[in-house]
Design a protein around this nucleic acid. Structure first.
Lengths: 210, 210
DNA sequence: CGGTGTGAATCTGTTCACAGCC
DNA sequence: GGCTGTGAACAGATTCACACCG
C-alpha cells in the first residue's frame, strides 16, 4: 500500500466518522474526495487497496468502510504509547485528549531531569528514564514518542528500541537511525514551518512577476 | 522546486549548522546525505535546484550553502506568526523556544474563550478573537497558526485569511479550504500516529509470513 | 443517469552511471 | 582519487478515460 494512500485513508476515516454521526449511510468517492482534498479517482484507487466495497450508482457503505479502514491502517486495536520528554511538547501531547479517542493510550511519561521526575502530568507521574525499559516491557508499550531536544533524540531512540518498542513517533528535528524492524515517523514543526515559509515566498515571487 | 526537496533542504540546513559550529568549512554530498537520510545523488540534485555551488573533488562550501538554503526556503528574513487557540497545543507552541531561533517570531496568541483571554502564555497575554484582525494588520503578521478543535478550524482560517495572513500552519485535523494566494501546511498528529500504527502492523505482518 | 473499478497514459521524483573537474 | 553535475533509466503515484453496473 503506497505511503500517501495511508495518509489519505486516515483523512477519509475522519470524514466518514463525521458523516456517520450525521446519520448518513452511504458516500460517493466524489464527496469523500472533495472533503479530504483528493480527486474521486484517487479515492477509488485508495479504497481499492483495502478491498473495494463500493456499489456502482450508490457509493460506499459508510459503516463497512469505517471498519475496513480501521482494520487496514491498524487502529482497530488499542496501541499503548509512552512519551519520553516532559517538556512543553511532551506535556502537551500527554494532555492532548484526542489521541485517546482514537485508540492510542498514553501509558507513561518519562524524563531525564530529576527536577521533573515525580511531578504529575495529565494524571500520570513523570518517571525517571531508568524506569523506562522495565515499564515498556511490563506495560506492553508498543510505541515510543520522542519529545526531547535533538541532541538526546538518538540515544533515547536507542534506549526505546532496546526496551522493545515497535514504533517511534519522533518530534525531534533529527533523522533517527534505528533497526529496521522498528518503524519511525517524524513530526517536525520546524520543517513544517519552513515548508510554509517557502510556499509563502514562492507565492509572493510569482505574484510579483505577474 | 519539488516539495520533498524543500523538506530535505531544511534537514541539510540543520546538519550544515552543526558542522559550521564544529568549525568545518566544506562538506560532501555523501556526508550530507547519510546524516539526513538521503543518497548523495539526491543531495546533489536538491542543491542543483538552488543554484549549485559545489566544487568537484572538494565538496560544498558550508557557509555559502547555509546562506543559499536559507534564501531558497525563505528563512533569511524573520517571519511573524500569530497562534490562534490557547489550549494545550497552542500553549506548547507558544512556549516552544526553538521557533524563535529559526527566524519565526510568535507575535501574538488568541483564543475565543473569555475564560482564557487575559491570561499570560509564554509572556504574552492571550487576546480575544475580536482583536485578531487589527493585530494582524498592525503587527504585520505573516503567518497564522491554527491550534483549535477541528470544528473551529475552518472559520478561524477564514478569519485569518480575511485579516490578511499569507500562510497558515494548521494543527487541526481538517483539510482547510482557502484562497490560493494563501499557503497552508498541515501538521497532523493523528495521521502521523496512524501512519506509524500502519507501518508497525505491516512489519509484524511480514515478520509473521517469513 | 450517477457511480464504481481499472488498465493505460502521464507526471513527478529518485536512482544510476558516467563524463568532467580539482 | 575524490567528488560534482547531469542526462537517461526507473519507480512510484496520480490522472484519465472508459467499460460496466444498479
Amino acid at each position: 500500500m503506497p505511503r500517501p494512500t495511508v495518509q489519505r485513508l486516515s483523512l477519509y476515516l475522519r470524514e466518514l466518522e463525521r458523516l456517520a454521526a450525521e446519520g448518513r449511510t452511504t458516500v460517493s468517492s466524489r464527496h469523500l474526495g472533495t472533503s479530504s482534498g483528493a480527486t474521486d479517482a484517487q479515492v477509488r484507487k485508495d479504497l481499492g487497496f483495502i478491498g473495494h466495497a463500493g456499489q456502482p450508482g450508490v457509493g460506499y457503505a459508510i459503516d463497512d468502510l469505517i471498519v475496513a479502514i480501521r482494520e487496514a491502517i491498524g487502529v482497530h486495536r488499542a496501541w499503548r504509547a509512552a512519551i519520553v520528554g516532559a517538556g512543553n511538547v511532551g506535556r502537551a501531547l500527554a494532555a492532548y485528549g484526542r489521541f485517546q479517542e482514537e485508540g492510542f493510550v498514553i501509558a507513561a511519561i518519562f524524563d531525564q531531569s530529576p527536577a521533573v521526575v515525580g511531578r504529575q502530568v495529565a494524571g500520570m507521574p513523570v518517571q525517571a528514564m531508568e524506569a523506562m525499559p522495565r515499564a515498556v516491557r511490563d506495560g506492553a508499550i508498543d510505541i515510543g514518542i520522542i519529545a526531547v531536544p535533538p541532541e538526546q533524540a538518538q540515544p533515547v531512540a536507542d534506549a526505546l528500541v532496546a526496551a522493545g518498542v515497535r514504533g517511534i513517533l519522533n518530534f525531534a528535528p533529527t533523522r533517527l537511525q534505528v533497526a529496521d524492524r522498528v518503524a519511525t515517523v517524524d513530526v517536525d514543526f520546524r520543517s513544517a514551518l519552513e515548508r510554509l515559509a517557502m510556499e509563502v515566498s514562492e507565492r509572493s515571487r510569482s505574484r510579483r512577476e505577474r
